[in-house]
């Protein structure tokens, strides 16, 4: 990872000094071991701030929507999941491919701080390093080595596009693609009866505090004005009453249908661990089964199944009602 980080800094300095771009969007290391956050670099001398480590999880693509960058040429770094989000923004005509210079960073998985904490490895931790498939947890006076996948985000373990599908310049070598089955949790839920499923989701949604982090981080949530922010009329009441929470999550999920790139960011940022991945993947699975396999964000030229109509499209929902 250090080698790629050096390349990142060199390339960022190069594109800024040559005037190819006005801004570089990357990640910077914070004071604490899990902190690697988005950084905005406009001066080549600041390229040294860039980092690439096991915690560079935030997707940078959505910052392109901010008005202050609209007229700028921006270079940015994408992991596989980030690239899918960018393509979705492009498909939604919200970003301009021509104004972005994309560095691809193949990614074999990032570390979930909550898993580190659950394993009790967080106290006194200074940093985490990776060599091959092995992680080293570094403390003041000791080290601990362990198999890396144990600590990867669930979304990384099921990632099918670790190598960015859109880029101008590739940093590093493509990594092997070896995803675990992603519909396991969905199938488990599908196996339950309707009452059990309803109760399950009621319990999940009842925890929602309506912080909107899931929406704000989502690369497919790019409406200029969100229905949930409207004050007149106020479609979504501000009280976190269960039915309002359900209205928020279910409406959002349907709006994501056929557009969710399965980057898993919504579930990552949720402070109360609502399993939004299962909700979105249920819709992905249904679309796959009804209209054939489709992965949002992979090919922005491909027509998404839910924005087109074929006479042969299945209409079981009509037939079963006897309409």
């Amino acid at each position: 990872m250090k080698e790629i980080m050096q390349k990142m800094r060199a390339e960022a300095a190069r594109v800024l000094s040559s005037g190819e771009v006005d801004l570089v969007l990357g990640w910077e290391k914070g004071d604490l071991w899990w902190q690697s956050y988005p950084v905005f670099i406009e001066n080549e001398k600041k390229a040294e701030l860039l980092t690439w480590d096991l915690f560079c999880v935030p997707n940078l693509a959505k910052y392109l929507l901010e008005e202050i960058w609209h007229k700028k040429r921006v270079a940015l770094f994408f992991k596989g999941c980030d690239a899918l989000g960018f393509n979705q923004l492009m498909q939604d005509k919200r970003v301009d491919r021509e104004k972005a210079f994309i560095f691809a960073v193949p990614c074999s998985g990032l570390v979930d701080p909550q898993k580190v904490e659950r394993a009790g490895l967080h106290q006194g931790l200074l940093r985490v390093e990776r060599l091959g498939d092995e992680l080293t947890f570094v403390y003041k006076d000791r080290e601990k080595k362990t198999a890396a996948p144990w600590f990867y985000y669930d979304k990384c373990l099921t990632c099918r596009y670790p190598n960015p599908v859109v880029f101008d310049f590739m940093l590093g070598e493509p990594v092997p693609v070896n995803p675990r089955e992603r519909f396991t949790a969905v199938k488990e839920l599908e196996g339950q009866n309707v009452d059990a499923r309803f109760q399950y989701w009621q319990r999940q949604f009842s925890r929602c505090i309506r912080c909107f982090a899931c929406r704000n981080v989502c690369p497919a949530c790019s409406c200029r004005e969100c229905i949930f922010d409207l004050t007149s009329p106020r479609w979504l009441g501000k009280a976190t009453e269960l039915s309002e929470n359900q209205f928020y999550h279910i409406t959002r999920a349907f709006h994501m249908a056929g557009r969710c790139v399965d980057c898993g960011e919504c579930a990552r940022v949720c402070p109360v661990q609502i399993p939004l991945t299962s909700l979105n993947r249920k819709l992905i699975k249904d679309i796959d089964e009804l209209y054939g396999p489709y992965d949002a964000g992979v090919d922005p030229q491909k027509v998404p199944p839910l924005v087109t109509f074929n006479p042969g499209d299945p209409a079981a929902f009509l037939e079963s009602k006897g309409v």
Binding site: P38, F212, N216, K238, A239
Partner: peptide, 27 residues
């Protein structure tokens, strides 16, 4: 510099033990 990366979500305020701003609404 700090605000640029802010997502504008409410996590920091809602999880804060001292944040106390409220609104009033009707059902």
């Amino acid at each position: 510099s700090l605000y640029r990366r802010c997502l504008g979500c409410g996590i920091c305020t809602y999880l804060c033990p001292t944040c106390h701003c409220f609104d009033i609404g009707d059902f």
